[in-house]
Simulated assay, not measured.
Amino acid sequence: MHHLLKEIRHNPLLWMLVFVPIVLAVEAAAPSAHTALFVLAVLAIVPLAALLSHATESVAEKTGDAVGGLLNATLGNLTELIIAIAALHAGEYMLVKASIAGAIVTNSLFMLGASFLLGGLRHHVQEYNRAGGRMYAALLLMATIALLAPSAVADLDPARGEAMALALSTGLAVLLICAYGLGLLFSLKTHKELFASEEHGETGGAGWPIGLALGTLLVVTVLVALVSEIFVSSVQKAGETLGLSPAFVGFIIVALVGAAAEMAVAFSAARKNRLDMSVSIALGSASQIALFVAPALVLLSYVVGPKPMDLQFWPGAVTMVMIASVTSCFITNSGRSAWFIGALLVLIYAIFAMTLYMVPPGSHGPV
């Protein structure tokens, strides 16, 4: 605990942790103050992301970048899962699908691209183990193909399309979870030597004890989940006040805030020339959302939702996810990166964001 208090005392960014109890108190006292809750939630997530970054780096020093990145991506995606379960319970299936698609695109384009860009501005050329990146990109591509199937089946027989898409989605959910498990077995057990980290990064000095780091990870992840729930509950109304469309809010803003904790770790690792960890977090998180979070939500919808949810996304979302998946496969083929590659990925993401931003605020079609 001494290490944690010392870090908070000497890091001005962590002084913003005061916003965590403030946003929880405001949510309890004035739940209808959506714009205020939106701003406070963003201010609260920033220091939580920084604290999570330090704790995850401490764990990575003991376990290695690949396992450390996997751990961070898993805990980071717990936030999206908790938010999505709450939305499922409320029957907000379009919000769930928008957040899933947005998280995949945000992680595989913006987080990966910004990591390449920030790392490349400090290091001329960076190298990473391409085996991990290629595996995550291949899993993501397979999951994207699975997202295309329900829409194709629904179009074949409009009369029975909804029932057929739901039955197919349930079967695909089981297959995707099996593929995710096989990927973990392959990378962490049978062929783990292929995914060893490149030993050329900065270690950043002594980290926290492993017990403190793991405890901090768990507590901060729960706090991020609580604050993110408040953010999502207020962001729709706040978006209307600020003139943002539901498509932009669900696909861009919710995804960016939900991944803030993971981004803090990925960007910090890239600046320290630990690109293996950045790639593992970005593409590992995207593939986990596609292969585990999305199918798990389909199965959970039978229990917590008013009716089962399928994997039939609107065409624009599937197109963006497919482009992001193919681009990730192409980019990670070399195992080397420079700042210009990252800039291109960020620009592709900016094109998607600009397109969704132009959707009229009163339009609910895309989501």
Score class of each variant (00 low, 15 high):
5 L>N: 13
9 R>M: 06
18 V>F: 15
22 I>D: 10
27 E>T: 05
32 S>M: 11
33 A>P: 14
35 T>N: 10
39 V>N: 01
39 V>L: 00
44 A>F: 07
47 P>W: 04
47 P>M: 02
49 A>M: 03
56 T>P: 07
57 E>W: 05
59 V>A: 08
59 V>H: 05
62 K>Y: 12
64 G>M: 04
66 A>P: 08
66 A>R: 10
72 N>W: 08
73 A>L: 03
76 G>S: 08
78 L>I: 11
78 L>H: 06
78 L>V: 12
80 E>P: 11
81 L>E: 08
82 I>S: 12
83 I>F: 15
84 A>W: 14
86 A>C: 12
91 G>H: 11
91 G>M: 08
92 E>M: 11
93 Y>M: 06
98 A>E: 15
99 S>V: 12
104 I>N: 12
113 G>E: 00
116 F>C: 01
116 F>H: 03
118 L>R: 03
119 G>C: 02
122 R>Y: 09
123 H>D: 01
126 Q>P: 06
128 Y>H: 01
134 R>T: 13
137 A>M: 05
138 A>Q: 15
147 L>T: 08
147 L>V: 09
148 L>I: 10
151 S>K: 12
151 S>M: 10
154 A>R: 15
155 D>L: 10
155 D>H: 14
156 L>D: 13
160 R>D: 15
163 A>C: 10
167 A>M: 06
167 A>L: 09
173 A>L: 00
181 G>F: 04
183 G>I: 00
185 L>D: 09
187 S>V: 07
191 H>Y: 14
195 F>R: 06
197 S>K: 08
197 S>C: 09
199 E>M: 05
203 T>P: 08
205 G>F: 03
209 P>C: 07
209 P>L: 03
211 G>V: 14
212 L>E: 14
214 L>V: 04
214 L>I: 07
219 V>R: 01
222 V>Y: 05
222 V>Q: 01
226 L>H: 07
230 I>M: 05
230 I>G: 10
233 S>Q: 15
240 E>F: 13
242 L>T: 07
247 A>R: 02
249 V>D: 07
249 V>F: 04
250 G>R: 02
250 G>Y: 08
250 G>C: 03
257 V>E: 05
258 G>F: 03
260 A>L: 02
263 M>I: 08
263 M>E: 14
263 M>R: 10
263 M>N: 13
266 A>T: 02
269 A>M: 04
269 A>H: 02
271 R>F: 03
281 I>R: 01
284 G>M: 00
285 S>Y: 05
285 S>V: 02
288 Q>A: 01
290 A>V: 02
291 L>I: 08
292 F>Y: 00
292 F>C: 00
294 A>C: 10
297 L>W: 00
297 L>V: 01
298 V>T: 04
299 L>M: 01
299 L>A: 00
305 G>W: 08
307 K>I: 10
311 L>K: 02
312 Q>D: 14
315 P>G: 07
316 G>L: 02
317 A>E: 15
319 T>V: 13
319 T>R: 04
320 M>W: 06
320 M>I: 01
333 N>I: 14
334 S>N: 13
336 R>A: 04
338 A>E: 12
340 F>Q: 11
340 F>K: 07
343 A>H: 12
346 V>M: 01
347 L>R: 02
354 M>Y: 15
361 P>N: 04
365 G>W: 15
